[in-house]
Computed example of a mutant assay.
Amino acid sequence: MKITLDELLAFTVVTDSGSITAAAEQLGQTTSGISRALSRLESKLDTTLLRRTTRRLELTEEGALFLNHARQIVQSVEQAEEQIALRREMPAGRLRVNAAAPFMEHVIVPLVGGFRRRYPQVELELNSDNQIIDLLERRTDVAIRIGELRDSSIHARLLGRSQLRILASPAYLARHGEPQQVTDLARHSLLGFTQPESLNQWPLRAANGERLTITPALSASSGETLRHLALQGEGIVQLADFMTREDCRQGRLVPVLAELTETETQPIHAVYYRNTQLVARITCFLDYISEQMAHDWL
């Protein structure tokens, strides 16, 4: 029968991505090549593994049974390759990393050069999403998540914490004056998030002693958008240090109500499924990122 690894890989990637087109993009092949690989595999097994619906491909009962075996074989080969690399004390292979766009831009991207020089055989694939993703569905090895975690089915590693601060541009404060107490914010243009509402709770105390929840004069779904609005002098904003560190260092943004701001930090975790063959390259990446963050970034 002589089933090939390429056929097994095509089958598992099509299953994970939900389409032949997506699988072809991920594997760097043509859709016709992926289709032929699936046809050969089904022919060799003399069974149908996938059926096409109006929306996507779905596993047959036989396909679901065979998928577990196919995954084990592919993972065993990847693990063998990884072990050979480990013998040379040099992690190797592709590592797919997903993070929110601001964290990718302000933290990960500046560290990529140093990481690649240290681990030249690790092939990074960087993707950005502002929503929480399904790691398996998006074929992601490790994702960076900011804030408290809710999913207990994945392995998580705390990389560090980033403090939240109230900030504005010097130009905005020159035009509108600098607030001296929390109640002064009512006369200012406040920049906030469209969702979730918790991001519009600032580390300040209102007159009734409760945590201040702002009503934004201008809202955005992205922290990076709010950062640019603040830099352009459109108002006062609450953002995390990891994305405003350089702005504050260069004086483009300055703290507002610093003495009244309570210390609040957001945890930054790396999350991934336990997967033996990926341990070496995940570990070296996370070690490097957390080392650099601890040294200079947070």
Rank of each mutant, 00 (worst) to 15 (best):
G28N: 02
Q232D: 11
S152F: 15
L135Y: 04
Q29L: 12
Q181E: 10
I108F: 06
A101R: 14
L185E: 11
A22E: 12
L59C: 08
T225S: 12
A207C: 01
E197G: 08
S221D: 09
G251I: 08
R139M: 06
E42T: 08
E264Y: 09
G63D: 01
T283F: 02
T12R: 05
V14Y: 05
R138N: 06
M104H: 09
I84K: 07
M90Q: 14
A92W: 04
L59E: 04
P216M: 07
Y288M: 06
I268A: 01
S219L: 05
I236F: 15
E264C: 06
L67G: 02
V237M: 07
R40C: 11
T263I: 13
P267G: 05
C284M: 04
L199H: 12
Y172P: 00
Q131P: 09
D296V: 11
P255K: 05
T183N: 11
I132K: 02
E125I: 13
A101I: 15
I289S: 03
P170A: 03
S76T: 08
A99T: 05
V182R: 02
H106S: 04
A10I: 05
P120C: 01
D134Q: 09
E62K: 09
I84A: 03
Q29A: 07
S162E: 01
V77Y: 03
A230N: 04
P120F: 02
E82I: 00
R88M: 06
S169Q: 02
E105W: 09
L38R: 01
A143C: 05
L191G: 09
E125W: 11
L260S: 03
I133L: 01
R157T: 15
R274Y: 13
P203G: 07
T54E: 13
L204N: 01
S169P: 00
F66W: 04
A280V: 01
T194E: 15
L239V: 01
R157F: 11
L86T: 00
V237W: 04
Q29W: 10
L8R: 12
L49F: 09
R96F: 13
F242T: 07
R56C: 12
E178P: 01
I20Y: 08
V13F: 14
L167E: 06
A101P: 15
R187M: 12
Q277P: 06
R139S: 06
I84P: 00
L257K: 02
V256I: 11
A10F: 05
T194K: 12
G160K: 10
I144T: 04
S221L: 10
P110R: 00
R249A: 13
V182D: 04
T53H: 06
Q79H: 14
Q201D: 11
Y272H: 10
E81P: 02
Q26M: 15
P170G: 03
D287A: 11
Q83H: 13
R117F: 03
C284N: 01
L185Q: 14
Q121K: 10
T48A: 12
Q131G: 12
V109Q: 14
L239C: 00
G235Y: 10
I73K: 07
L59V: 09
M293L: 13
R71W: 10
V14E: 04
R117W: 01
L159M: 08
L9Y: 15
L191V: 08
T53K: 03
E42P: 03
R175G: 04
